[in-house]
Amino acid sequence: MTETAIEAAALGKGFGRRRKQALDDCSFRLLTGSVCAVVGPNGAGKSTLLSLAAGLLRPTDGTITVLGAAPAAVRERLAYVAQDKPLHPQLTVADTLRYGRELNPGRWDDQVAERIVAEGELEAGARIRTLSGGQRTRVALALALGKRPELLLLDEPMADLDPLARHQLMATLMADAAEHGTTVVMSSHVVAELDGACDHLLLLGAGRVRLSGPLDDLLAAHRLVTGRADASLDPHTVVESRTTGRQTTALVRPEGPLGPSWQATAPTLEELVLAHLRAPEAPALRLDDVREAAV
């Protein structure tokens, strides 16, 4: 049986005196070895979720379990790169890597970290203060991968990188993850960045889970249909439908065979996500346990 990397149960996090909910009643499950995309509009709670998983925040409601324990208890086994890539500006690149080595005794892998830095042609003596945003991202990722995590939490990791560096770094990341069986959780609002890399999707909206499950299962559960505007889509669940002239295009979750009046195709990841983002009222769908049941 596959182990659980992250399990959230009715997880909630409120901020401030008025307890503004950044996350509300979130439940999902992620198996080890997955590469999970956390997607959602700005302010959906992606960063809060990753901080909770990294043991940096305490939940106000519910629980979150990481690698079978409380996040704070498995600190050595997880790595986290925050959205703004905080690093000590006064340190050099070499000192920053040493920082990782000193704080992760017995775990640190110099070769991995130095390879990532070397690929960016960074000088070891350069101060972090003088680096560009993309170069800082590279150092931050080196620091995260150097500790050989079992779970890697990345908050908007590629935002500062040019397309070439993004491609190259993503490939490094995925190869490393595949080689070591690392679970990767990556947030983004650029869906295209995640396509092809991820096998699991977590879509957040307004602090709640909208979609959660293996990507293939989620895509298989939806159909993009086109047909005449007056045709009925009952009893299927309509996520979003748009009518132009006499023609309707809709994303549906079929509850049985679709009628002959509809032309159905499989949606792409981008279509699936965009349809759910455009239709905040659509019901949530959780398919986390499907694969386990199938195994």
């Binding site: 901080s51 940096l56 790595a79 905080p86 000590h88 775990r107």
Partner: peptide, 14 residues
């Protein structure tokens, strides 16, 4: 303020 505290907390330092 800069988040480097959180950096340490995810580098195996509670």
């Amino acid at each position: 303020e800069s988040g480097t505290a959180q950096l340490a907390w995810t580098q195996s330092v509670s």
